[in-house]
C-alpha cells in the first residue's frame, strides 16, 4: 500500500534529480571514457605512425611527435626486401591454420559432451580440462622439447602445431560448450526420437545449428596460435621456420634497434588479427561468459 503511494513520488524525484545530475555525471563518464580510449589507442597509434617515419626521423630526438614530416613506405618495403617477412607470414598462417582446424574439430566433440551428456565423473573431467590452464608452460616446455628432439620434430611445423593444442583445446572446448548449451534441447530430442543416433544428431542437427559458434571458435584459436611466442622461439632455430612473432623479435639488432622496421612488422602482423577479431568479438564475449557468469 505504502509502495503505491511512494512510487510515483520517487519516480518524479529521480526524474527531477536526473535533470540536474545527468549532465554532470555523463560529462565525467565521457571524460573518463576519453582517457580510457587514449590509454588503449595511444601505444598502438604511436607505433602505427612510427611505421611511416623514416629511420632517420625516428632516431632524431626532436621528432617524437605525432606529426610525420616525410611519410614513407620505406619500412614496409624493407620488411619484405631485407627480411623474409612473407615467409614468416606464411609460417604463422600455416601453423595457426592447422592448429585451429584440428583443435576446433577435437573440441567440438568434447564441448558437446560437456554441454549435453551426463556421465559419472563429468565434473571431474571438465575440471581436468580447466586444470590445464594452471599448468605452467615452463613445466611442460622442457619435456616437450626433449620429446621433439628425440622424434626429430624440432624445426618443423609439427612441433608447434602439436604444442599449441595445449592451450587451444581447453579454450575451444570451453567456448564451444557455451555455444552448444544455447541450442534448444528439444531439437536434439526430436532427432533422437526420429531414430537418429548420437553421432547423427551431432553432425546433422547440432553442428549446422552452431555454425556461427564453430566459425568464431576457429578464428579465436587461429588468433591465439598466431599470437604465440615462447613455443615458437624455443622449438625452432632455423630462420625459414620463424613465425611472425619470433621473426619480428629477431629483427632487433644487437646494438641498434631499427624501430621503423619493427613498427612496420608489428602493424603488418597485428592488423589482420584485428580485422578477423572485429568480425567475431561478439561471439567471444558470448561464449566466454556463457558458462562463467550464469554458473
Amino acid at each position: 500500500m505504502s509502495m503505491r503511494i511512494t512510487a510515483p513520488r520517487t519516480a518524479a524525484m529521480t526524474a527531477a534529480k536526473h535533470r540536474v545530475r545527468l549532465p554532470a555525471r555523463m560529462v565525467l563518464v565521457y571524460f573518463l571514457l576519453a582517457g580510457l580510449t587514449l590509454a588503449i589507442v595511444m601505444p598502438f597509434l604511436w607505433l602505427f605512425l612510427g611505421s611511416f617515419k623514416s629511420s632517420f626521423e625516428l632516431m632524431q630526438n626532436q621528432s617524437q611527435t605525432l606529426w610525420i614530416k616525410n611519410p614513407t613506405l620505406e619500412n614496409y618495403q624493407r620488411l619484405f626486401r631485407e627480411y623474409d617477412f612473407a615467409r614468416y607470414f606464411l609460417n604463422s598462417t600455416i601453423v595457426a591454420g592447422v592448429t585451429a582446424v584440428f583443435a576446433t574439430s577435437v573440441s567440438a566433440f568434447a564441448g558437446y559432451s560437456l554441454a549435453r551428456f551426463t556421465f559419472a565423473g563429468k565434473s571431474f573431467l571438465s575440471f581436468l580440462i580447466l586444470l590445464t590452464q594452471m599448468i605452467p608452460v615452463i613445466a611442460t616446455i622442457i619435456p616437450l622439447y626433449l620429446w621433439f628432439q628425440w622424434l626429430h620434430l624440432l624445426d618443423t611445423y609439427w612441433a608447434l602445431i602439436i604444442a599449441y593444442n595445449a592451450f587451444a583445446i581447453p579454450f575451444c572446448t570451453w567456448l564451444l560448450r557455451g555455444f552448444f548449451m544455447e541450442i534448444p534441447k528439444e531439437l536434439e530430442e526430436a532427432a533422437e526420437i526420429d531414430g537418429a543416433g548420437q553421432l547423427g544428431t551431432f553432425f546433422r542437427i547440432v553442428l549446422p545449428l552452431s555454425l556461427p559458434g564453430l566459425v568464431a571458435t576457429l578464428i579465436f584459436s587461429f588468433i591465439l596460435a598466431w599470437q604465440e611466442f615462447l613455443f615458437a622461439v624455443t622449438f625452432t632455430s632455423k630462420a625459414e621456420l620463424r613465425t611472425l612473432t619470433v621473426g619480428i623479435a629477431a629483427m632487433r639488432g644487437r646494438d641498434i634497434v631499427d624501430w621503423g622496421l619493427l613498427n612496420a612488422g608489428v602493424v603488418v602482423s597485428t592488423v589482420p588479427l584485428a580485422v578477423l577479431f572485429a568480425f567475431v568479438q561478439r561471439y567471444l564475449v558470448k561464449g566466454l561468459t556463457a558458462g562463467a557468469v550464469k554458473g
Binding site: 612473432t245 619480428i248 619493427l262 608489428v266 597485428t270 588479427l273 584485428a274
Partner: peptide, 16 residues
Amino acid sequence: IPWVVPGALAAMMFGL
C-alpha cells in the same frame, strides 16, 4: 584492442 595484439609484439611496442 590490446587483447588482439600478440604479447611479444605488445612487449616490443612498450619497449619503444
